[in-house]
Design a binder for these strands. Structure first.
Lengths: 327, 327
DNA sequence: TTATGTTTCGGAACCGGTTCCAATTGGTTC
DNA sequence: GAACCAATTGGAACCGGTTCCGAAACATAA
């Protein structure tokens, strides 16, 4: 390992001069050239630990994800990764495996690592989270959930729910099942549903039933047959694309044709919804873009810049073949 | 920030004594108790940078992945993450976005961070990789590809290809298309194909055509129609589940029923192959398990233990509905 | 009680950087 | 050539740990 002292000795200057060279202090042209030569002749690069030890901080951004095997997570991470690379920040990913306690532990652990900021792909914010953030004294950006004490980047859950609701009505559906998720998840469990509710309420001769399932495909597969049998909806509006995938499989297994016998919609815009047959109509969120924004925003916070509490990402209704036109 | 010096002062001992307490040196019972009390009264924990600076090493394992949005990557990472957590190692994930140069840069970058070991989810090993590893002087485990100079964990590509070949024959298929990928990818592009070839060669009255496409779904969607039109195979054996998904979509779009008009198989065992309709018959690899093994092995190497050059993960042919029985 | 051997402990150096401060150098101006 | 000011430079302290080494404390044996 070649150190700054070695460079200094070889170049015939002092450590402090080399350090100044590295950090842009005032230096004469002659010594600048000399040091430059020596440094890349010996391919020197400063020891990160020594730097962090002295600086008491790093340029690492910690990202906590609830799970690694999810489209939304992957895409968001890709966006974060790309942007942080441009900003010359290091990314550390911390997986909480959908365990809120582990999530909180991860906050403390990142704090001990002296990360400059934390991006949290949030599902639910508890007092434990807030306490951890308070103790850590580190800037935080939430992605996907809103909280009035924290900065967040959120998808337009309410608006997309509303627009999708209007779309479904416009296609002539009047007997609707909405298959949602737990209200603990404010964004997905409440906002989407509320937006949808707002869109369909007041529409004459329209029946809407609300159901709840888990986030995974299997859960939806099991839930959907009962719903169909009991209420015979012409459409099931699913709160996530995964749920829609489960519903699609369930429909197939019951021998129903989609969309002729049953229409479906999702939320998310996962790539796979384009590949299924039929393609699934869905409210597409721009996760990668959200990741990019999160990365930009966290570095702004780290640098002490001002920042609005909330940013929104755009969304788009992608019309495919899974919704029948009943009119 | 409370430091070791603070603890020492409060406890009325020297820094070295506290350090000994932390690292298991010889200490009298009385001072042990005293220090213990002070430490958790002040919730002290040692500064990682200072430790790493002195020790010139870390307990961080770097994992380089070619992409984040892939089933195989996610699952492998989950396995690595779980196992490293048990082994009290820190995981750092480095994404190369399928860019070999960036992959090599990432090796150097991890080396600069003084990671204890590197796990590489490999696609192709170039001289640049070898040179980087040589310079880094850090233990490496390859996952998914084999290389005689490096330790690796590989899936049984040849064997699974062979078994799937036999399966296809046994189902009575005699006009077969094999849709593979570039031979630059030894495991996926060559091994799987060779295993399959071995299984079908010598089978009388059997026609097999080999084709190549990219790794993504879209590529397969575009490639498959030509293949069907030109050769009318009864089955397309796809080198990855993604390719099979693309083929499935392409078949649907041509109005072909699967498996009645066209059979399909994949490799990988992605969860989604269970959800499509019909479910896709595939050779399932245990990525999570491979990740676990990689994590265990890299820590063994880090600790200087001996290790065989190659480990295999198991695989399994998952029979679903996408293969018609022609007999 | 003294000599000897073990534990236990403190002091100081070190890891590889950064930064403050004072000293030197060089260039201007009179 | 002296005086002055700004630009460069070197020395030393510091960040928060670990570790070597010698001193002190204690226990045991003679």
């Amino acid at each position: 390992m070649v150190t700054i002292a070695d460079i200094a000795k070889i170049a015939g200057v002092s450590k402090s001069t080399v350090s100044r060279y590295l950090n842009g202090g005032s230096i004469s042209d002659a010594t600048r050239k000399k040091i430059e030569r020596v440094i890349d002749a010996n391919s020197y690069s400063p020891n990160k630990f020594a730097q962090s030890l002295k600086a008491k901080k790093t340029n690492i951004i910690g990202t906590i994800v609830p799970r690694l095997d999810s489209y939304a997570t992957s895409q968001t991470l890709i966006g974060i990764d790309e942007q942080l690379r441009e900003l010359d920040c290091q990314l550390v990913i911390s997986n909480s495996s959908q365990d809120l306690n582990r999530e909180i532990e991860n906050i403390y652990s990142l704090a001990k690592q002296k990360v400059a900021g934390i991006i949290l792909l949030a599902t639910e914010i508890t007092d434990g989270h807030l306490e951890a953030f308070r103790q850590a004294q580190i800037p935080v950006i939430l992605v996907g959930q809103q909280h009035d004490q924290l900065h967040s980047i959120i998808h337009k859950d309410y608006e997309s729910g509303y627009e999708l609701g209007k779309y479904v009505l416009q296609k002539g559906h009047r007997n609707i099942a909405y298959l949602g998720v737990t209200e603990k998840d404010i964004a997905v469990g409440i906002k989407r549903k509320e937006g949808f509710k707002k869109a369909v309420e007041g529409q004459p001769d329209t029946l809407v039933h609300y159901f709840e399932t888990s986030f995974n495909i299997k859960g939806a597969m099991e839930r959907v047959p009962e719903i169909i049998e009991e209420y015979q909806p012409s459409i099931i509006v699913c709160a996530t694309d995964n749920i829609a995938l489960g519903a699609l499989k369930a429909a197939y297994m019951k021998g129903l044709r989609v969309p002729e016998d049953l229409s479906l919609t999702g939320f998310g815009g996962y790539d796979i919804t384009e590949i299924t047959y039929p393609g699934i109509t869905t409210a597409k969120f721009y996760y990668k873009e959200a990741g990019r924004m999160a990365a930009k925003d966290i570095t702004k916070l780290v640098n002490g810049e001002e920042l609005g509490k909330i940013s929104f990402t755009k969304y788009e209704i992608i019309e495919r073949e899974s919704v029948d036109n009943l009119l």
